[in-house]
Structure formats: structure tokens, C-alpha cells
Write a protein that binds this DNA or RNA. Structure first.
Length: 379
RNA sequence: UCCUCCUUAGCUCAGUUGGUUAGAGCAUCUGACUGUUAAUCAGAGGGUCAUCCGUUCAAGUCGGAUAGGGGGAG
């Protein structure tokens, strides 16, 4: 049982991109990495076996808010933690529910103590405080757990972003205190990642980076991006954060993004990503492929019996045809959602693993530029 | 051969006692989706109301003929 370790293996000479290795008690993660989102203990439409064998996922996410409401902490503890509950023996990262407090803002009430919100399932009222969220994440048992933060909307004014950031910092202190007072529950080490906030304001972000860094956590996250601000702003803030966060710790950019967002942010020094886009958009008939974005719903694929994507190493993408997948999606067959989700996730993983190879071989930037021209429209 | 019913968007159908620019679902196409309350949501295009002739200020709605189709009787 050992705390998470990060080994910085290669640094690109022409950009800030890095290749590294994260070691957890559930195995290694080679970075840069994309982490499929499995909110309620399930990457929607994709089985654990498919995640391992087809998608080649190295780590997945769970969500504190959702798992706390259902199935509930009692079940998860009795199961021996989320890994055992869902039969996934690779690393898991749990998000704290901070984002849900933001996105479900219709029914929340923020105080110094925490956030009172209503369950979207039965309307019941609950309090999330930093201490409660740490306790819940201890019970879920993720290898990496996230601080409880407030995620303000993208265009937030300076004053609101500042107030919100300061609250997040005070909550962070409480998160670490509780985290350090409590023990791992299932025989493997858990690691608390703090989250940088500060909106799109440079001085706030810099301040937040310094504050977060002072916690000397095993890894650091950047939150509050891709929440409505212009994409160029996101890159700008991401670059600034990368400069001010320690180089010897993994950097996790939360919730980002499109394949192109990911390549750009890898170039800025990000190591870890998660996003709902490959699975959600896949279920909505949007496929990310080596040749660009396609809407598999379109009639033009009706008789296209070529493979979904031969440009990536995924049996599902290589074997099933566009015409077949279109048919399944049109017919609302569950298998269609599975294939689309698996393909999109495999594509995302392909992007980050290829990025890693190119960083190591020294042609990351030229490969990235080639991708840009290949995709034409930047995905 | 006769009787009867039907014909409105690509498909299946609504269209009040004749009265503004004839609607819906599906299909087609487009857009959205970034730490999942989303197999979701938003929008667009598409009709000589089978054809022709009448009645009427006004016809998808009423009358007649023709064509195609369903059912029945011989």
C-alpha cells in the first residue's frame, strides 16, 4: 500500500508536452491519458471487459454525488468498495460532486459549511460539506479522490470568481484535514487531488495554483474550464496553470474535451483528461474518427460497408461497418450505443497513446499539426 | 357487371357545422452536447389535399365524371 507516484519520463523539446507514468495500488497509468467517465459505476453502454480489451482504458471515473445517492454508501461499503462492487481492478478516480453542485444549481444552497442540494431522484435534501465528501469518497474507495470545490460558470465576473475561489480554498483545507484524519478502507492507498479555480482571471488562477501547490498533493487538478468560456480563453488559462503547478506532479484538466482540445492541452503540459463527450455524443450518433467527425445517423452511410475506423487499434471499430452501425442506431438497438461508445472511447485513447508515443519519439508537434490538417475542422 | 368505402408530406394518418399562411408522428437534413439528471434536446425542409368539371363570395371539406385501390354481391 503506497501513495501514488508520478514519474516524468519524457519532456517534449518543442512544447510543454510530457510523457509520464502514474503508479497506484491498482496499477500503472501511462500519461498523457484519457479517463472514461463512469458516473454511477458504469461507463454508459460499455462493459468492464470492453473497457479493458476494446477501449484499453487504464483508469475510469466515478462520481461521488451520483454514487452517494444511488446505490448509497452502505451498499458500497458492504461490497468492499467500488472496485469490487463493479469488478474493475484498475485505478478509479472519483469526482467530488462539486461539478454537480454547479450544474444542478437550480436546487442548491451554498453556505460556508457546504452545499445543500436536492436529490434529482426523489427530491430529498442533502448536505455536502468537505468532510462529508471526503468520508463518502473514502467509502467509495477511489485511488484518486477529488477535493470538494465550487465550479463557477465560465463567464463569471472577477468578484464572484474570487469569492468562489476563496471558498474552494477554505474547503480545500478542510478536505485535507479530514482526509489526513481518516484511513484508507480497503487496503489500497487513496490520493487527494486539490483543484485550481479562479475563473478566467489570471491573478486568481495564479494565486489558486500557488495555494493548491502548497498542499504538496500527489497530483493537481485544474477545474472550472470548458464551462462556457471561449476555447481560446480555456487554452490561455490552462497554459497559465501548467506554468504555475509543479512539474513533478501529474496535472489533471477536468472535463476536457474534444480530441483537439486534448491535443492542444497536452502541448501545454496536461497529463490527465476526462470527458463525457465520447460516450454521450456517441450515444447521440456522433462519431470521432481518424477522418473527422461523422454523423452516423445520416442516410449517406446507409450502404457504406467500410469499417467504422481502420485508423485505430480497436477490433470493434475495425470490424463493424458504418452501414451496420447506422442501422443499429436508427433501429434504436442497444448494441448501436455500445459500438458507438466503444469506438469513440477507443479513438480518444488512441489519440492520447499516440501523443505519448510521439512525445517519446520527439515528433509530437509535427504529428499534432498533421492531425489538424487531417481533421480539417478541429474536432 | 352492380353496390359500397377509400385516395391529404417519403410512410402512417388528423383535419371540427365549407371560412386566415392544411397539421402530427415517423422518415430526411441541420445544430447542440466538454469533472453525465441527456440512447437526449432544439430547429429546418418537404403537400397543385388522386385528376378534371361544377356549386359557392369562399372547396381538403358539397355534387358529378374519370383513374387507382379495398370490401361485398353476382
Amino acid at each position: 500500500m503506497a501513495a501514488l507516484k508520478f514519474e516524468l519520463q519524457f519532456t517534449d523539446l518543442n512544447s510543454k508536452a510530457r510523457a509520464g507514468k502514474v503508479t497506484t495500488d491498482h496499477g500503472e497509468i501511462l500519461t498523457p491519458i484519457f479517463m472514461p467517465v463512469g458516473t454511477v459505476g458504469s461507463v454508459k453502454a460499455v462493459s468492464q471487459k470492453q473497457l479493458s480489451e476494446d477501449v484499453k482504458a487504464q483508469i475510469i471515473l466515478g462520481n461521488t454525488y451520483h454514487l452517494y445517492l444511488r446505490p448509497g454508501i452502505e451498499v458500497l461499503e458492504k461490497a468492499g468498495g467500488l472496485h469490487k462492487f463493479m469488478s474493475w481492478d484498475k485505478p478509479i478516480l472519483t469526482d467530488s460532486g462539486g461539478y454537480q453542485v454547479f450544474s444542478l444549481s437550480g436546487t442548491r444552497k451554498l453556505t460556508e459549511e457546504g452545499a445543500v442540494f436536492q436529490s434529482h431522484i426523489d427530491g430529498s435534501k442533502h448536505l455536502f460539506s468537505p468532510e462529508i465528501v471526503m468520508d463518502i469518497q473514502r467509502s467509495i474507495g477511489g485511488d484518486i479522490i477529488m477535493a470538494f470545490d465550487e465550479c463557477p460558470p465560465g463567464g463569471s465576473e472577477y468578484d464572484y470568481a474570487k469569492t468562489s475561489m476563496e471558498l474552494t480554498h477554505r474547503w480545500l483545507d478542510r478536505c485535507f484535514r479530514r482526509f489526513n484524519e481518516t484511513m484508507d478502507k480497503y487496503g489500497h492507498s487513496q490520493n487527494l487531488f486539490p483543484i485550481v479555480q479562479g475563473g478566467i482571471h489570471h491573478d486568481l488562477r495564479k494565486f489558486s495554483c500557488d495555494y493548491i501547490s502548497s498542499k504538496d498533493a500527489t497530483g493537481n487538478a485544474i477545474g472550472g474550464l470548458s464551462v462556457g468560456e471561449p476555447t481560446e480563453k480555456m487554452y490561455e488559462i490552462c497554459a497559465l496553470c501548467c506554468e504555475h503547478l509543479p512539474a513533478e506532479k501529474p496535472r489533471y484538466l477536468m472535463g476536457v474535451g474534444t480530441p483537439w482540445n486534448i491535443l492542444e492541452c497536452i502541448a501545454l503540459g496536461i497529463d490527465m483528461f476526462d470527458c463525457v463527450m465520447p460516450t454521450r455524443n456517441g450515444r447521440n450518433a456522433m462519431l470521432f474518427t481518424s477522418n473527422g467527425v461523422i454523423n452516423i445517423d445520416n442516410k449517406k452511410w446507409e450502404k457504406d460497408f467500410s469499417a467504422i475506423d481502420t485508423g485505430i487499434d480497436c477490433e470493434v471499430s475495425n470490424n463493424y461497418s458504418k452501414a451496420y452501425l447506422r442501422h443499429l442506431i436508427k433501429a434504436k438497438e442497444i448494441l448501436g450505443l455500445q459500438i458507438a461508445s466503444i469506438h469513440n472511447l477507443a479513438f480518444y485513447i488512441h489519440i492520447v497513446t499516440t501523443a505519448r508515443e510521439k512525445i517519446i519519439s520527439g515528433d509530437f508537434l509535427s504529428w499534432k499539426n498533421e492531425m489538424a490538417s487531417r481533421w480539417q475542422q478541429r474536432l
